[in-house]
Computed example of a mutant assay.
Amino acid sequence: MSQRIVSIGECMIEMSGGEDRSYRLGYAGDTLNSAWYLRALLPDAWKVDYVTALGADKYSGDIRNFLQTNNIGTDHIQTIPARRPGLYMIHQEAGDRHFTYWRDMSAAKLLADDKSALAAAVECADLVYFSGITLAILAPKARGRLLGAIVKARDNGAKIAFDTNLRPALWSSPRVMASVLTAAASLCDIVLPTHTDEAPLFGDATVDDTANRYLELGVEEVVVKDGSKEALIATATERVRMAPPPAASVVDATGAGDSFNGAYLAARLQGKSITEAAQAAHRTAGIVIGHKGALVDPALVR
């Protein structure tokens, strides 16, 4: 039986490269990246919809076309004529990637302003996926509208999955960030945090501390990522530790965690155990880091 998956967040224009001042234009965003791998790994009959807001400009149109071409639903992308997509540029410095963002006029910051459009977007969803970045870019009242729509979707039978994806620069203070992310997580069935991001904010000494904190909120399934170290998948009755397979080479780590999330959720939606899902997630992330960019050819991960 086919299902409908809804991923909510911001799709940005990505300018990467920079050698000789030449850049490659692409599209990326944490929840879009996860939706990409959900689409790649789920049956074709299942729907994967992306929910955001875009402008009425050429580049917003190009993003819509890109999603449609890759069989990601755009029916619930709102149009905000006075806004545009956010943009970021990547440059190399001291052997590492650095990001510069332009998102003040991002249409996605208004994705939760229309309550009825938001309700329609999550109606009849089997899984709703969002992230800490989704929440961070919204005004406080808009966050409330989004979480209200998510509660209604859950009450109507949807599973709710959430990557806390901490980005301190997007929040007014660490206290607000911790409070909002904790409140959001308490509404969810599956939470997919990253231990090294969580530890400074919440004081988690170990991956088990991170898992326990979310289990105590009532989350059914916590998937704690930890970079190249083993992931911990914890429920009230089971704990699985899964190390990633050795990677042949790391070309670009962009989107590794997002691809892990997409593959994990795709496996769970198809009835796989948490062990099988973790294996699939590590495998997919291992492929992604061996290629440039967050979005690799779907054929590579199937």
Rank of each mutant, 00 (worst) to 15 (best):
144 G>R: 11
265 L>D: 01
57 D>S: 02
269 L>G: 05
109 K>R: 15
213 R>P: 10
205 A>I: 08
74 T>P: 03
12 M>E: 02
90 I>L: 13
219 V>L: 00
210 T>R: 05
193 P>S: 08
171 W>E: 09
65 N>W: 13
272 K>A: 13
72 I>K: 02
22 S>M: 15
248 A>P: 03
254 T>V: 13
120 A>H: 09
288 V>H: 01
15 M>I: 10
110 L>C: 15
111 L>I: 10
82 A>W: 03
102 W>I: 05
212 N>L: 08
83 R>G: 07
35 A>F: 02
14 E>T: 06
105 M>F: 12
75 D>K: 13
258 D>V: 02
212 N>C: 06
101 Y>R: 04
188 C>R: 05
64 R>M: 09
147 L>I: 02
188 C>A: 09
18 G>P: 06
244 P>I: 05
228 S>H: 14
36 W>Q: 03
121 A>T: 12
161 A>Q: 03
285 A>L: 14
232 L>A: 14
120 A>K: 12
82 A>D: 08
102 W>R: 08
197 D>K: 00
230 E>W: 02
21 R>V: 13
253 A>S: 15
252 D>F: 07
151 V>R: 15
42 L>N: 03
241 R>V: 02
264 Y>T: 07
171 W>N: 05
124 C>P: 00
271 G>A: 14
51 V>C: 06
152 K>G: 10
95 G>K: 15
120 A>T: 00
159 K>A: 13
299 A>F: 00
147 L>W: 01
278 A>K: 07
248 A>Y: 01
80 I>G: 00
67 L>D: 07
37 Y>K: 09
16 S>W: 05
198 E>K: 07
271 G>W: 09
47 K>M: 10
257 G>F: 00
275 T>N: 04
233 I>G: 04
142 A>D: 13
140 P>Q: 14
212 N>T: 06
60 S>D: 08
37 Y>I: 10
165 N>R: 04
136 A>Q: 02
189 D>I: 05
194 T>E: 06
201 L>G: 10
145 R>V: 11
240 V>C: 10
106 S>L: 04
241 R>N: 09
248 A>H: 11
238 E>V: 07
138 L>Q: 06
191 V>E: 09
292 K>F: 14
66 F>I: 00
2 S>R: 06
119 A>I: 13
300 L>G: 10
210 T>N: 07
32 L>K: 02
284 T>V: 11
225 K>E: 08
159 K>M: 11
233 I>N: 04
100 T>S: 14
178 A>I: 07
40 A>V: 05
182 T>W: 00
228 S>P: 15
243 A>P: 13
47 K>H: 08
259 S>F: 02
102 W>Q: 11
280 A>I: 07
208 D>A: 15
47 K>G: 09
227 G>Y: 05
245 P>G: 09
35 A>R: 03
9 G>V: 04
254 T>P: 07
139 A>L: 07
241 R>K: 12
93 E>K: 01
156 N>S: 12
106 S>M: 03
60 S>P: 02
207 V>R: 12
212 N>A: 13
289 I>T: 04
94 A>C: 14
